[in-house]
């Protein structure tokens, strides 16, 4: 009798739809809160949000972030404030995806996205430089650095809603 009961469970599951995904062909949807690879964001006007303050690097428990800052000028403007990140690198082998960098960022420049397929054949490839992290400008928008009119961007830290 017990054996029939046992096989009942087996046959029931044979008829059900399988839960196994054929990864990597099939990828499950992520929760919005999922913390994957980082992105450096831009304002709507296409300028970079990052001000190179290095607070993400200070907050990082794994010491995975390296930032070097430099000064903007109206001839060569990356971000609306006084300074921008000249070098921005994250070592993905060190990163533990805790999201502290996102919490520490005063301009919401760094955000953890949903990319999770991070594998490398060389240790050096694990270092993501700024060009790999930063979002591409929206279609038709000019990339950074830009030449801008003098006197538009005067704040040292821009207003988040209206950076100009």
């Amino acid at each position: 009798m017990n054996i029939i009961k046992g096989f009942m469970t087996t046959f029931k599951h044979v008829l059900e739809e399988p839960v196994t995904l054929q990864y990597p062909e099939q990828v499950k949807d992520f929760e919005k809160r999922y913390k994957g690879r980082h992105h450096l964001r831009r304002y709507d006007n296409g300028l970079e949000k990052c001000i190179g303050c290095s607070l993400c690097a200070a907050a990082c428990p794994a010491d995975a972030i390296w930032v070097e800052a430099a000064e903007n000028s109206d001839e060569e403007r990356y971000s609306p404030g006084e300074r921008y990140a000249k070098t921005y690198e994250i070592n993905m082998l060190r990163c533990i995806f805790c999201g502290y960098c996102e919490d520490a960022c005063p301009t919401q420049a760094i955000q953890l996205g949903h990319e999770h397929q991070l594998s490398f054949t060389d240790r050096r490839d694990a270092i993501y430089i700024k060009d790999m992290l930063i979002d591409a400008p929206a279609d038709g928008q000019e990339a950074t650095p830009r030449q801008v009119e003098a006197g538009v961007y005067t704040q040292s830290i821009p207003n988040m809603e209206d950076p100009s």
């Binding site: 001000i51 190179g52 800052a69 300074r83 005063p106 301009t107 040292s156």
Partner: peptide, 8 residues
């Protein structure tokens, strides 16, 4: 006092 601390 301005809130410049991140870039100061």
């Amino acid at each position: 006092h301005p809130l410049d601390c991140p870039i100061c």
